[in-house]
Write a protein that binds this DNA or RNA. Structure first.
Lengths: 127, 127
DNA sequence: TGACATGGTCACGTCAATGTGACCACTGAA
DNA sequence: TTCAGTGGTCACATTGACGTGACCATGTCA
């Protein structure tokens, strides 16, 4: 992402698709939001309560990115007070499938990673 | 990661395994290095040439992290000039399997993401 | 004598990601 | 009248990721 001389934002296609995806999903909140939306539609403040320790700012920004990339849709009901609903798109749902494999792998092998770190540290402490 | 009063580094287990994994793999170089090592063992400078635009600094740092987490092993042969070989561990290999699913998903759906961005931008340009 | 290759480390600067708190427009309830 | 809730935005500070270039010890080759 960069800007043209007139100040508009231009989003360039990354050369490598997986980099593109990891850049979005690798951040602190995207995955949490997608998984919170997996069971169904939620409103802004409901998402905040669901996730717990996210600020309005970060929730708003991250939702905008996810909407931009087509993972979720944002629906504004012009009532008073306004109601805004966020829902996973089919693209968003389809993404969660391979992602779930990775989550499962992480759950399964997390102990091995922690053990490796402990071993590494033990080896380098004696020095 | 934080430090104890005596200055030693302590690596805490993340509460959420997938966060832990994404924090490591989400960075710019880890995945590239793992995939470069997938076919077999490589030496430091061979890795640099393979990846192309990585600096010594970042390669060294990232390799150290990956070794720490048990994804790769580092073998030093005390010859002159020294020879250092990096190899995927079974853990590293097993990680690449679910990761490959995600890479495939990214390849398949990348066009949809790019299209969604274009659509989003078009909708917000008229405003 | 000096250049070169190996596998790094160190000091430093930059930039994007993230967090904090204030503010906003609207309206129904107390 | 004032307070709370809804769904945000804005300005600011901090932190960590990342990049650049210098430097190092060793030995071999020219």
């Amino acid at each position: 992402m960069t800007t043209t001389p007139d100040g508009k934002e231009v989003i360039f296609e990354q050369p490598c698709p997986i980099r593109d995806v990891l850049d979005r999903i690798g951040n602190q909140w995207s995955l949490l939001i997608l998984e919170a939306l997996a069971p169904g539609t939620l409103r802004f403040n409901a998402l905040m309560r669901e996730i717990g320790d996210i600020s309005k700012q970060m929730l708003s920004r991250t939702l905008k990115q996810l909407e931009q990339d087509g993972f979720i849709t944002r629906t504004l009901y012009p009532e008073v007070p306004p109601r805004v609903e966020y829902t996973l798109t089919p693209l968003g749902h389809s993404f969660l499938e391979p992602m779930q494999q990775l989550v499962d792998w992480a759950d399964t092998h997390h102990h091995a990673i922690v053990a490796a770190r402990a071993r590494y540290q033990a080896e380098n402490d004696q020095a």
